[in-house]
């Protein structure tokens, strides 16, 4: 995955603030190891973070000493007689079982057990999904990590059913509604989404399936997918979108640029006037920088598949400008660059 300098700096900031996901942390470690320049940037940002937050930096540990500590435990435990061969243990377990049962009965109705995450569990905002399960996003957008680490974001009111042999004999899921899939690609273990008779085969991908009435829209944000319907196939790559008419059982690629949804804008020091022009052309809106003093303000941010109101909100927040929308024109007002 290619990231801009700004994205990397944001990622480093997230990492230092304890907000990075495991995947981001891994990516960052690999990126640091790529060359000295990357490492230097990380160290500099880490030092800045340390100073500005009044915290110590992480100090490189002695891996050798740490391993010795772990090794001692491994050796000690290897020498230990297995517990189940120890008569005391058997008696102890029996006694503990009785006590635990009584305590369990006592607490069952009064204490809500706190839920902790198992080693294999996914993000704090996500739920662990065993196979043979139905995932529901009943009242809000919900994120799920499947056991193969693929991530599914289900739209409100949507449902995903995992095949009983999910991840054993392929990875088949059935979608009702809308969702975005970030699939961990595995050629030997294909990921297939079935939606209203259409099959969407992952070929290394992030894609969205959106069901509205009689129409299913498929948008590929990264990688590629293959649509299969009644023996026909349709290949889609990053930036492509297609639709499927359920009642007519017809699938088509969107050809016109107006309906393409590969809305990825990478602004890296781009001046605001140019940003307004690019966005205006894409979204077919007249976006005008109304004050000269902000026309040259640099914008450094990447938008991926965001809608125009969200993009404008972010620009407003970043540059501290005012955005006034009316029927024909969107005006950006402000005084100087922040």
């Amino acid at each position: 995955m290619v990231r801009t300098r700004n994205e990397i700096e944001e990622l480093i900031a997230s990492f230092l603030n304890g907000e990075a996901t495991p995947e981001q942390a891994m990516w960052l470690e690999e990126w640091k190891a790529e060359n000295d320049e990357n490492l230097a940037l990380f160290v500099l940002m880490e030092k800045t973070w340390s100073l500005s937050n009044g915290r110590e930096r992480f100090k490189s540990p002695s891996v050798e000493n740490a391993w010795k500590k772990v090794e001692v435990h491994i050796k000690e435990r290897a020498k230990t007689i297995p517990l189940w061969k120890n008569p005391r243990f058997i008696i102890g377990v029996a006694a503990a079982g009785v006590i635990a049962f009584l305590l369990g009965v006592f607490f069952a109705n009064s204490v809500q057990p706190e839920q902790f995450y198992a080693d294999e569990d996914p993000d704090k905002s996500e739920k662990v999904i065993p196979a043979e399960n139905v995932l529901l996003a009943s009242d809000k957008v919900s994120s799920f990590t499947l056991e193969d680490n693929s991530i599914v974001n289900l739209e409100e009111g949507s449902q995903l059913t995992l095949a009983a042999d999910y991840n054993v004999n392929g990875r088949k899921v059935e979608l009702k509604g809308s969702g975005t899939f970030e699939v961990v690609h595995d050629e030997s273990n294909p990921f297939v989404v079935m939606v209203e008779g259409l099959e969407v085969y992952d070929i290394g991908t992030v894609f969205t399936i959106d069901t509205r009435g009689d129409t299913v829209s498929i948008v590929v944000a990264e990688g590629a997918v293959e649509l299969r319907l009644n023996g026909k196939t349709l290949d889609m790559v990053e930036g492509d979108s297609a639709f499927y008419l359920i009642s007519d059982r017809v699938m088509e690629r969107y050809e016109s640029k107006e309906v393409r949804q590969d809305k990825v804008f990478v602004f890296d020091g781009t001046n605001l006037e140019e940003v307004a022009s690019i966005l205006g052309k894409f979204f077919k809106r007249k976006i005008v920088v109304m004050d000269e003093s902000i026309a040259e303000c640099p914008v450094s941010v990447t938008f991926k598949n965001e809608d125009l109101p969200t993009i404008l909100d972010i620009i407003r927040e970043l540059l501290d400008v005012k955005i006034v929308r009316n029927k024909d024109i969107i005006g950006i007002y402000g005084e100087g660059c922040n």
Binding site: N6, E10, I12, A13, T48, W49, D313, I314, E317, L318
Partner: peptide, 30 residues
């Protein structure tokens, strides 16, 4: 009342600007 993405942008920007502001100071501070 902003998006998490915007918070990420701000924090990245803050650290970048702080780094610039403390650039001359950084070796001494360290």
């Amino acid at each position: 009342e902003i998006s998490i993405k915007t918070v990420e942008n701000h924090m990245g920007k803050a650290l970048r600007l702080m780094r610039e502001e403390l650039k001359d100071y950084l070796p001494l501070i360290v």
